[in-house]
Design a protein around this nucleic acid. Structure first.
Length: 242
DNA sequence: AAATTAGTCAACCGCTGTCAA
DNA sequence: CTTGACAGCGGTTGACTAATT
């Protein structure tokens, strides 16, 4: 982790994310979806770059991110995938449901690098490998579901659990997977208050006025027109059956 | 117990690809 | 075709922690 600091030129915060920041980001995305990473932080009440928000969401806050140690099966998938794909971490990560490219990359560098170099390509053929990946992926999916379920139970039952950590996970703290989304404060900046209370009230979105009513300003309309509709519509179709 | 070293991993940086104007 | 904005990727950093001296 890096020391929290402010970027003097932009005033944007850097370094580790606080619980409050996580909650703001999760709450915002939960309500309004992902429409533009560069502009979103302002409206979510975050003094972060869009890049930073995207990274935080993709790697740690997004639902169904799998935490904890890698299984033997996952190790094998990484080793074999790396022998085929090289350092294409995002491609490798797609073979490991719930794992991110960053996590896979870190795990490779800290645990598997020497093994990978020592055995750059074993005797598996490509087709054999693919069938193994398919088989393993199904297994990992099952394990992932178990972990998510178990995670929530363990948290509620914390005092009686001797083996689990007493520190809640990111998901537990922020509210992912247990239906707790605190919308938080819109911040003290005037336009943020305007956004939360007038420009984009939840009622507008709930009634399907996803774009025109939520973003009446012409500047917003120009830049958001195409990108906002898909994500928001998907989210609200799922949430409210619009 | 204190100091040093090694390992881990969250986060940043710079670059590339894509797409719309 | 060019340009600019944005998303995404991979390499790297550096704070923190555990292990070792």
């Amino acid at each position: 982790m890096r020391t929290p600091s402010s970027e003097k030129s932009t005033g944007l915060k850097k370094g580790s994310w606080s619980l409050e920041e996580d909650q703001k980001l999760v709450s915002y995305i939960k309500r309004y979806g992902i429409w533009n990473w560069s502009l979103m932080p302002k409206y979510a009440g975050l003094s972060r770059s869009g890049k930073s928000c995207r990274l935080r969401w993709m790697n740690y806050l997004k639902p169904n991110i799998k935490r904890g140690n890698f299984s033997k099966e996952e190790e094998e998938i990484i080793l074999h995938s790396h022998s085929v794909l090289g350092n294409r971490w995002s491609a490798i990560a797609t073979r490991l449901p719930g794992r991110t490219d960053n996590e896979v990359k870190n795990y490779w560098h800290t645990h598997l690098k020497k093994r990978g170099i020592a055995n750059p390509s074993d005797s598996n053929t490509s087709s054999t490998f693919e069938s193994n990946v398919t088989k393993n992926t199904q297994h990992v999916n099952y394990v992932t579901d178990n972990i998510v379920t178990q995670s929530s139970v363990t948290f509620e039952d914390d005092s009686s659990s001797s083996s689990s950590s007493t520190t809640p996970s990111i998901e537990q703290e922020v509210g992912i997977n247990n239906n707790y989304y605190d919308i938080g404060s819109p911040g003290t900046v005037e336009d943020l208050q305007l956004f939360w209370t007038q420009l984009c009230p939840i009622e507008n979105l709930e009634h399907g006025n996803i774009y025109q009513d939520a973003f009446p300003d012409s500047v917003f309309q120009d830049s958001f027109h195409d990108s906002i509709s898909h994500d928001l519509y998907s989210l609200y179709n799922h949430e409210f059956g619009i």
